[in-house]
C-alpha cells in the first residue's frame, strides 16, 4: 500500500469538490456539536442530581399555637406527641434519618437565606418559626410518595414539603433541552450522511476514468475505494475538530455559567473530553459508513 499515492488522490478529490466538502464539514460540525451538547447536558444533569439529591429532604412541619391550618385546631404539638411522632417517622421504611429542627435553628436558617437589611429578617421573630422534622431519605431516586403521604396523615403534622418537587421541574426542563439537542443532532447526522453520499458519488463520477483503469489492471478493491472513503473521513474529522471547538466554547460560556447558579460543582474538562471523543468517533463512523454504502452503489468493482 502506497500512502502517498492514496493521499494525493484524496487531496485531488477534496479540492475538486470544494463546496461539497465544505457543506459536509459544516453539517458534521454542527451535528456533532449538538450531539456533544446533549451528552454534556446529560453529564451535567446527573452531576446535579447527585449534588441535590444528597441534600433533598422531606420537611414535616408541625403544628404550633399560631398555625392556621384547620387540622391542627389551633393547638401546638405537645411533648409526648412529639416523641411519638418522631418514633413513628423513624419507623417508616425508606427513611434514613429524622432530625428535629427547633424554632431557634429554623430562625437561624431563615435569616441565613435573607439579606441583612431584608424586611422579613427584621420583623420575623423566633416564635414565628415552625418546628419541623427533616427526613433524610435512604434512596432519593426512588418513589417516596408513600412516605410523604404517611407523614401527612399523622396527628400534629401541619404540612409536608417535598424539596424534590422544586429541583425536579428544573431537571425536567434540562431533560427536554437534552432531547431537543439530540433530535437536532440526529437530523443533522442524517443530512451529513446524505451529503457525504452525494460528495462521494460526485467524486466517483469525476474519477471514473481512473477507477476504470484501476479495475482493469487489477487494483484491489481497497486501493480503489480507500481514496473515496478517506475523503469522507477527512471531511468528517475536520468537522469533528470544529465541533470540538464548539463544545469547549459551550463548556466555558454555557455550562460554567449554568453551574454557577444551580450547583457548586461545575462540569469538568474530563466530561468535555469524553463527549468530544464520542462525537469524533460517531462522526468518523458515519462518514465511513456513508462512503462505503455509496461506493457499493456507484463504483462497481
Amino acid at each position: 500500500m502506497r500512502a502517498n499515492f492514496i493521499f494525493s488522490e484524496v487531496w485531488i478529490g477534496l479540492r475538486r469538490n470544494l463546496t461539497m466538502t465544505l457543506a459536509v464539514i459544516l453539517t458534521v460540525a454542527v451535528g456533532m456539536a449538538m450531539l456533544g451538547v446533549g451528552l454534556l447536558i446529560n453529564a451535567q444533569v446527573s452531576m446535579m442530581k447527585d449534588f441535590w439529591y444528597d441534600r433533598v429532604e422531606v420537611s414535616v412541619f408541625l403544628c404550633h399555637k399560631s398555625t392556621a391550618i384547620p387540622k391542627c385546631g389551633g393547638k401546638g404539638v405537645s411533648d409526648p406527641q412529639l416523641k411519638a411522632l418522631e418514633a413513628k417517622l423513624k419507623g417508616i421504611s425508606g427513611v434514613a434519618d429524622v432530625i428535629y429542627e427547633d424554632q431557634e435553628t429554623a430562625f437561624k436558617n431563615f435569616k441565613a437565606t435573607l439579606a441583612e437589611d431584608d424586611v422579613m429578617s427584621q420583623t420575623a421573630k423566633v416564635e414565628d418559626m415552625p418546628t419541623s422534622f427533616r427526613l433524610k431519605l435512604a434512596d432519593p431516586d426512588s418513589n417516596y410518595q408513600p412516605i410523604v403521604d404517611a407523614a401527612r396523615a399523622m396527628p400534629g403534622v401541619a404540612s409536608v414539603k417535598d424539596q424534590r418537587e422544586i429541583v425536579g421541574s428544573l431537571f425536567d426542563m434540562l431533560d427536554k433541552l437534552r432531547s431537543a439537542a439530540l433530535i437536532v443532532a440526529g437530523t443533522l447526522v442524517v443530512a451529513a450522511a446524505l451529503l457525504i453520499g452525494n460528495t462521494v458519488r460526485l467524486s466517483a463520477f469525476n474519477r471514473r476514468r481512473e477507477t476504470g483503469i484501476m479495475r482493469l489492471v487489477g487494483a484491489s478493491n481497497i486501493y480503489i475505494q480507500l481514496p473515496f472513503v478517506m475523503e469522507g473521513v477527512i471531511a468528517g474529522l475536520i468537522g469533528g475538530v470544529v465541533a470540538a471547538v464548539m463544545l469547549i466554547m459551550s463548556k466555558v460560556f454555557l455550562f460554567d455559567g449554568l453551574a454557577g447558579y444551580l450547583a457548586n460543582k461545575t462540569l469538568g474538562w474530563d466530561d468535555v473530553a469524553t463527549s468530544i471523543t464520542w462525537t469524533m468517533a460517531i462522526g468518523v463512523l458515519i462518514c465511513v459508513l456513508a462512503s462505503f454504502i455509496t461506493l457499493r452503489r456507484y463504483l462497481r468493482v
Partner: peptide, 11 residues
C-alpha cells in the same frame, strides 16, 4: 507507471 502504482509495486 499508473498501472503498477495502483497494484502497489515498489517505486
Amino acid at each position: 507507471a499508473f498501472a503498477l502504482e495502483v497494484i502497489g509495486k515498489p517505486r
